[in-house]
Amino acid sequence: MNDFHKSSYSHSSGECVEVAEGPTTLVRDTKHRDGVVLAVPASEWRALLADLDSL
């Protein structure tokens, strides 16, 4: 089982995503936990976060 936690990039407006980090980062919508899960290689996830931090 993956350990999902609320992303620090989520806002308090209720529009949240949860992530489970590991060799593959999993991302899901908190409102649809049984729905689609996006799977991204960890290196690509880190690159995305670095790009977001630079905005």
Rank of each mutant, 00 (worst) to 15 (best):
S54R: 08
H32M: 14
V17M: 01
M1A: 14
G35Y: 06
E15T: 12
S7M: 00
S43D: 11
V40L: 03
H11W: 03
D3C: 14
H32W: 13
V36A: 08
V19W: 01
F4T: 05
K6D: 08
L26E: 09
R28P: 03
T25H: 03
P41G: 12
E18Q: 12
H32N: 15
V27C: 02
E21F: 04
S13N: 11
R28T: 01
V37N: 02
L52W: 02
E18D: 13
E21R: 00
L49F: 04
A50I: 06
L26H: 09
S43E: 15
L49D: 02
E21K: 10
S7E: 00
L55F: 03
G14H: 01
W45E: 06
G22A: 04
D34I: 15
Y9M: 14
V37E: 00
E21Q: 07
V36S: 10
L38P: 12
K31N: 10
S8W: 13
H32E: 05
T25D: 02
N2K: 15
K31S: 10
L55H: 05
S54D: 05
D3Y: 03
V17D: 04
D51G: 10
K6Q: 04
E18I: 09
T24V: 14
S43A: 09
M1V: 14
A39E: 10
T30E: 05
D29G: 14
A42M: 08
A47S: 04
V17E: 04
D34T: 01
F4G: 03
W45I: 03
N2V: 14
R33D: 11
S10I: 07
P23N: 14
T30K: 12
L26R: 12
V36G: 10
G22D: 09
P41I: 02
A20C: 00
M1H: 07
V37F: 01
V27S: 11
P41L: 04
R28S: 06
L52S: 05
E15P: 08
A20N: 04
V37P: 09
V17K: 07
L48C: 11
M1L: 15
T25S: 10
A50M: 06
S8T: 13
R33S: 04
D3F: 15
V37S: 01
A20G: 04
D3Q: 08
D51H: 13
G35R: 07
G22I: 13
L38S: 15
H32R: 05
D3R: 15
F4A: 10
N2F: 13
N2Y: 14
S13Y: 10
V17C: 07
S54I: 09
W45F: 06
G22K: 12
S13H: 02
T24C: 13
K31A: 08
L26F: 09
S10L: 01
S12L: 01
A50D: 03
L38M: 09
S13C: 03
D3I: 15
